[in-house]
Structures are given as structure tokens and as C-alpha cells.
Design a protein around this nucleic acid. Structure first.
Lengths: 140, 140
DNA sequence: TCAATCCGCAACCAGAATGGTTCCGAATTG
DNA sequence: CAATTCGGAACCATTCTGGTTGCGGATTGA
């Protein structure tokens, strides 16, 4: 999770929710995110696989949200863009001849999993609708 | 947090706790972690700044844990090796002319902070002593 | 005094990841 | 048929990562 894809994905989905049923082009979306349309399409392609959005080619085409904003949690978005754990283990396996090296990975896997689960519980509590309402409540 | 330094740091500190008052050389430690001594020194240098360990040059020198194992939590180790957030924002700032682009960063900062805090609370509950006891309880 | 041991630090390296960009083909629309 | 839009491949510069080498300096103990 060193990359910014998660943040951009939430941004884009919130924008789609903001737009309602209207389809937004990757070029328009890129204007809000302030990046290149291809970067947007790359991220949205992953969200499409997850069933969150659909795309339509040709004039008048673009991207649409497939679910109600309150039916999409930030945890689901995380799962859609990132399959990696937040806590990678050793680059090369530790020495099995050392008592610590032999058991440290199994021990840490458990603790790291608990930490990540706590994080995910927090993200599961927030939906696109929450973000949308906050955006709309912002002063102009 | 894409790197493995956190895992290695916990491994090394657990090893120092296992060794008790005896000083361990970076070469010995590297043998357990299965990497290069310089990599170990780089990580331990950060832990020394955090006040967790001390180093001693010359024959018989090496690295020692400066605190009781139950006085070092996994959260403290995380803080010592990594100052970055788990949730980076956009690579370039979003478009302030867009209602979503204008407010999304502030909104996400709040939610990401809550998620990270939940993760850190979990890590704060585990100490080096917990790991040490689990290591010692492992079958030979 | 001297040799061995150990850390400290800088430099360098290959590989991977990241975000960005260009290009062209295919599908759709009207 | 022309304009629009996505799809996908290719390429790029930058940064990060873990690993490695080399050398200086400090400490220890014979």
C-alpha cells in the first residue's frame, strides 16, 4: 500500500456517485483527479472487475457506478484495488536453525492479521454515501 | 509500508531479547535473518535513534536491547522504523475547481487516520515479551 | 604496541514498482 | 462515415528496495 491507487479509486467512485446516472468519460474524471486519462482507465478497469462500475465506448459513453453509494464501503474499494497485505514478511526466509528465525514468521502473521482486520473494520464503516454527503455539505 | 524492514526489526529485537544481556554482532544477527550484516546495521541504527538498542564496537561488541521486553510494543517498533502513513493521498493535488476534488483529501485524511489508529491499537497490545514467550514455547 | 574485531558510513548495483505518456485498434453513436 | 470513447500494449523517468563492497575508526586484549 505505498501507492495512491486506493485514494484515486475512492475519489473517482465518489465523483461517479456525485454524477448520478450520467456517464463520465475518463478524460473528464482525469480532470478532477489531475492526472492522465489512461491512469484513470487502469484503475477503473480493476473496479469493473470487482463489479463496482461499468464502461461504455463511443460518443456519450464513459463510466457509471453500478451500485447505490450506500452499498459500497471503503473496505470493498480497498479489496478491489489492492490484494496485498500491509505487512510483508522477510525478503528471504529466515534461518530455520535459529529458534527465533524458525518461528517468527508464523507468530507475526497472526499479529499482523489482527492489526489489518482492525483497520478493515474501520474502513467497512464508511460508505460512498458518507463521502458524498460530506462533499455536498462543503461550503462552495 | 511496502518494505520488509518492520518485520526484520521485530525479528532482530526478539532475537536480542532472546539473547538477554549478551551482545550480538550484526553478522550473527544477519545469520538468523538470512541477509547481509549491513542491512541489519541500517535497521538497527534506526532503532538506536529510537532508544531501543545500543551498539558497541570492537571485539566482544555488538548490539543489546536497552529495555525490558515487556516494555517494547510492536507499535513502538513500527514508529521507530517507519514514519510514513499506510494511506498516501494523490500523487498530484486534485482539481480544486471540482467539488469532489476540492474536498476529498480532507475527508479521506480523517477516515484513513481512524483506520490507521485502529491498526495501531492492535499493535500496541503486543510486546516483545509476548513474542519471546511464544518462541520459547515452540517445539524444538 | 599491535593485531583482531566490530561498527559507521558512503557508494554502488540490479530489480521492481509507480505514475505518466504515446500510439493505435475496436466499438459505438448518430 | 466521422467523431467519440474505451482497450491494451509499449515505453519512460523516477523512486524504492534489498543487497554488496570498501574503507575508516574505535575498541579490546594479548
Amino acid at each position: 500500500m505505498t501507492n495512491t491507487r486506493y485514494t484515486v479509486a475512492i475519489h473517482v467512485l465518489t465523483l461517479l456517485a456525485y454524477a448520478g446516472p450520467e456517464a463520465l468519460t475518463s478524460e473528464y474524471i482525469a480532470g478532477s483527479v489531475n492526472t492522465n486519462p489512461v491512469v484513470i482507465r487502469r484503475i477503473l478497469a480493476g473496479l469493473r472487475v470487482a463489479g463496482l462500475v461499468r464502461s461504455q465506448g463511443g460518443p456519450g459513453g464513459g463510466w457509471q457506478l453500478l451500485r447505490a453509494p450506500d452499498a459500497v464501503s471503503l473496505l470493498e474499494v480497498l479489496r478491489a484495488v489492492d490484494t496485498e497485505t500491509s505487512f510483508p514478511l522477510h525478503a528471504t526466509p529466515p534461518n530455520p536453525a535459529c529458534p527465533v528465525g524458525r518461528s517468527i514468521q508464523a507468530l507475526l502473521t497472526g499479529h499482523f492479521h489482527a492489526a489489518q482486520a482492525a483497520m478493515e473494520r474501520e474502513l467497512a464503516r464508511v460508505s460512498l454515501r458518507d463521502l458524498l454527503e460530506d462533499v455536498k455539505a462543503q461550503p462552495a
